[in-house]
Design a protein around this nucleic acid. Structure first.
Length: 202
DNA sequence: ATAATGATTCGCT
DNA sequence: GCGAATCATTATG
C-alpha cells in the first residue's frame, strides 16, 4: 500500500527539491463520487519572490495568489486561457509563495472515468499529458483551490509510490513563460526520462 | 465599470 | 507550424 504524503513533506525542503521528489508520486482525486489516480511524471517549480514566471513574483499578493502564501500541503488551482484548470501544489512555510505545477501524469485508476471527462472513447498518450488535460482527466476545477491535500478524506491527496534515481529525472527550462525574461531559462521543469506520458521535449 | 491578457489545447494546413 | 477558443483575474478609470 502507498502511504499518504504528510504535511512535513511539503515543508522540509526547497521547492526545487520537492518538485524532483514529486516525480513518481501519485495524485489521487475523489470528485463527484469518482475515484481516479495517476503517477506524476512531469512538474515545474515556481518560486516567489524572485521568479518572474511566478504569479506571486515580487510577493505580489492578490485574491488569486494568496493561496500560495499559505503553509505547504494545499492545492493552488487557477484557470488559464479561460479554459484550463491548472493544478499546483503549494510548498514551504506560510509567507513563502512557492508552488509546483503538475504538468503530466501516467493514469493508474479510474481510466474509464478519465476518458469520459476527456471525451475520449479509449486511452491514449494524450489523455493526461499536459497540465490542462491532466487536471481535466482527474476532475480538478478551480473551485478546489486552497484545499488541503494531506488528508485521505480530501478530494485531492498525494501518496508515495515509486522512487526514481536522479539520473532518470531530466531537468529543462520551463515552457510557456517567454515573458519572464531571464527566468525563462531556469531549468525548473522536471520530467521522468523516456516516459511517453510527458509533454514533448523543449 | 471596463478592457487586456494568459503557467494551453485542439483542429486545420 | 498557426490561430482560435474563452473567461477569471488583473489593472486602470
Amino acid at each position: 500500500m502507498s502511504t499518504l504524503l504528510p504535511e512535513s513533506f511539503y515543508l522540509s525542503k526547497d521547492v526545487l527539491h520537492i518538485a524532483k521528489s514529486l516525480i513518481g508520486k501519485v495524485i489521487n482525486t475523489n470528485i463527484e463520487g469518482k475515484f481516479t489516480s495517476g503517477m506524476i511524471v512531469e512538474t515545474e517549480a515556481y518560486r516567489a519572490p524572485d521568479d518572474k514566471a511566478c504569479h506571486a513574483y515580487n510577493n505580489r499578493l492578490t485574491n488569486r495568489t494568496k493561496v500560495m502564501f499559505e503553509k505547504g500541503g494545499i492545492a493552488y488551482i487557477y484557470l488559464c486561457y479561460g479554459i484550463h484548470h491548472l493544478f499546483n501544489v503549494v510548498t514551504a512555510d506560510a509567507g513563502l509563495a512557492h508552488a509546483i505545477l503538475i504538468r503530466g501524469i501516467e493514469p493508474l485508476d479510474g481510466i474509464s472515468t478519465m476518458c469520459d471527462r476527456r471525451r475520449k472513447s479509449k486511452i491514449d498518450y494524450s489523455l493526461t499529458s499536459g497540465p490542462g488535460t491532466a487536471s481535466l482527466a482527474l476532475g480538478i476545477t478551480s473551485k478546489l483551490s486552497g484545499i488541503s491535500i494531506t488528508k485521505t478524506n480530501s478530494p485531492i491527496y498525494l501518496t508515495d509510490y515509486k522512487t526514481f534515481h536522479k539520473e532518470r529525472i531530466f531537468a529543462s527550462p520551463r515552457v510557456g513563460i517567454d515573458y519572464a525574461e531571464e527566468c525563462a531559462k531556469w531549468p525548473w521543469r522536471f520530467r521522468l526520462k523516456e516516459s511517453p506520458w510527458t509533454s514533448k521535449p523543449n
